Amino acid sequence: MLVASLTAVGAQEGPSGITQRTVFAPFDPTQRGCHKPPGLTKELAYVQENEREFLQGVNHGLEMAAKDRGLKYLRSVAENNVPKAVEDINAYQAAKVGALVATSSDPTAVSSSLQRTIWSGAFVGTIVPPPATLLLNAPQYATGKALADASINYIKSQLGGKAKVVLLTQDTMEYLTPRFEAMRDAFAKTPGVTIVADIAPTPVNKEGGFVTMSTVLLANPDIDVVLGGDAVVLGALKALRVAGKDRPNQFLGGIDGEPEAVSEIKKGNSPFKASISLSSPVFGYAMGQFAADWLDGKSIPQAMDILPIALTSENMAQYEADLENPAAVYADPIRKSTYLKMYGNICYDTRDQYVNFPWSSESSK
């Protein structure tokens, strides 16, 4: 039996949720029979890990959805301070905030606070790590494959089928390792491609990418392809330019669709050719809409795929329009389906079925 709305952090514990890997059926928006959570405010709060552009996009979408649905919007930025993130989540739960979205650099540290928020009856949304009443994840293998495929097409059409490749990985994060497994698998099937470096920069940011790529260039000065997250690949691009080893016909590709990467792609003559976009304003807006639905007593998805899109100069204009106005995407079923796919059903009455395992739609494949 679910616990009643909690009055203080650390009060009576509740159900552990779904802890075993589970394959959810497609989301059924016609499900009825749910109730509004009692005693909670019509507020949507966002505990934001840091000011990274990707997370700023989530903020943009959430804020727009809150405005469109008449929710008061609250936000706190932890700046990678995990105790502050925990404190902020606990404060929102104690204030009976009705909906919470949270990201943290240490998901394990915030998980207990998120569980207590779920037990209180509130909506909880997370991006990749559990627990959540709505967990978002990208199909990570498909994301890596999309970037690898784009680079392979370029190698075949522009580089004569031969290339020296650098992979700047994030294999230290278990949730992201499938991205790089997909890249290795794709290149292993491509004659003429040699991976000369396969390494995780430390830290995984622009500076880490610069330092790592500078080291790689000492042994391998002529690089054709560099793949990884946007931030580290942008650092690699800087290293190539500093060393005078950048060429217009190189293929640098990233993941996240961050603004600086987008700016490079739009130049036309930059080595940075593509970014796999996981449109954070679009999924942020969808998450905000489902938070409002939860508070209205409706059934919402338990999980949602953020579908990867290979962003290039050809489709840039439509992508940027969608970033600016995610509400228009959400209102158009066809456009929405290119960004998002939804699974399972949950509401206030069935919140004991919250996701408490590292869900991915690829788990059963």
Rank of each mutant, 00 (worst) to 15 (best):
M1T: 09
S16Q: 15
G17R: 06
I18P: 01
T22E: 00
T22K: 15
V23R: 11
F24H: 13
P29V: 12
R32I: 08
C34A: 10
Y46A: 10
Q48D: 13
E53T: 10
N59P: 02
D68Q: 12
G70R: 05
K72V: 11
V77C: 07
K84R: 12
E87R: 14
I89A: 08
A95H: 08
K96Q: 13
L100I: 15
S104Y: 04
S112T: 11
L114R: 02
I127F: 02
P130M: 05
A138Y: 03
Y141K: 12
Y141M: 06
Y141I: 05
G144V: 06
A146E: 00
A150V: 03
G160K: 10
A163K: 04
V165Y: 01
Q170H: 11
F180D: 03
E181I: 15
A182Q: 04
A186M: 11
F187S: 11
P191C: 10
I195R: 04
I199F: 10
I199K: 08
A200N: 15
V211L: 10
V211K: 02
S214Q: 09
A219T: 12
A219N: 14
D224P: 06
G229R: 05
D230H: 01
A231E: 15
V232D: 12
G235N: 03
A236V: 09
A236L: 12
L237C: 08
A239Q: 11
L240C: 14
L240Q: 04
V242S: 06
K245I: 07
L252A: 12
G254D: 06
E260W: 00
E264I: 02
G268L: 05
P271F: 02
F272R: 02
L278Q: 09
S279I: 01
G288F: 06
A291T: 04
D293C: 10
D293E: 11
D296E: 08
S299R: 03
I300W: 04
Q302F: 07
A303I: 04
L307G: 07
L307F: 01
P308A: 12
A310W: 07
A310L: 14
L323W: 00
E324Y: 13
N325D: 15
A328G: 05
Y348L: 13
R351E: 01
Q353V: 04
Q353E: 13
Y354L: 09
Y354F: 15
Y354S: 05
